[in-house]
Design a protein around this nucleic acid. Sequence first.
DNA 1: GATTAGTTTGTAATCATTACAAACTGATAA
DNA 2: TTATCAGTTTGTAATGATTACAAACTAATC
Lengths: 135, 135
Amino acid sequence: MNNVGDFLKTNGIKPSYQRIKIYEYLMQNKEHPTVDSIYNALNGQIPTLSKTTVYNTLKIFIDKGIAMAITIDDNEVRYDAWMDIHGHFKCTHCQQVTDFSVDFDGIVGEELLDFDVLERQLFLYGVCKKCKEES
Amino acid sequence: MNNVGDFLKTNGIKPSYQRIKIYEYLMQNKEHPTVDSIYNALNGQIPTLSKTTVYNTLKIFIDKGIAMAITIDDNEVRYDAWMDIHGHFKCTHCQQVTDFSVDFDGIVGEELLDFDVLERQLFLYGVCKKCKEES
DNA sequence: GATTAGTTTGTAATCATTACAAACTGATAA
DNA sequence: TTATCAGTTTGTAATGATTACAAACTAATC
Ligand SMILES: [Mn+2]
Ligand SMILES: [Mn+2]
Ligand SMILES: [Zn+2]
Ligand SMILES: [Zn+2]
């Protein structure tokens, strides 16, 4: 992607300064940031930024299908602009969320044969490699 | 299970009236109720019941491993006393959450080889059979 | 009956999210 | 240019689920 503004435009989103910065932030910070961390990170560059704008913008991104919400924990919604199919692992020790590849073929039982499945989320929890080695 | 009180005891939980009723409710109502729906359903039988007790009790159940929280949606935590491995499908039309069987073998990529995976949650979203037929 | 630990309850506090309306911006047209 | 207007951003207030906390209660033990 050479131009974030064009990318937003082709997805039906008017590329305002704030929207471009928020999308760029998601692309460059793949640790699945929260609204709060996005706001705090961008508040330096955009001193007038409102947290409401961050909420609004992420909602637009999700509606237009260029980002997703990751509710891997009940007290923090995280956001991800990497839209390829992948799963998320959350380390209960260091709280980090790690991406991993997933093959959904054959995973689902027959109970859902007549269901339309439009979205999938696989969340794993445990202790990451780094935390295991440190203890 | 013939005696809920004994079951709670063997899991290190003192079987108070409220705890027994809440656990029985989870067993008999497998639609993954929220704190609110559990509270409202039991308030008739237990007029003095406090919502805080429902929160406290569910927390104990989860700590002791006899129930789990299902955060399939970011604005409502649901609870499940069926602890066998299974996935959850949420219909975005009627909001119902349906259980389905899952085979996790071979689903996870190599990225997590050195990770300790202790818990898994597979959430699917879409339109259920009933809603599909009705439209 | 007194003591005590554990449980329940009601209220207040917290905090993420949403609602809302005013202010602002940038494009379009007179 | 100036006026208009839709869309965007902002700050503040409201909402609502969850948590914190302390008093009241319960049931077992001494
Ligand atoms: Mn991711
Ligand atoms: Mn279930
Ligand atoms: Zn870790
Ligand atoms: Zn449905």
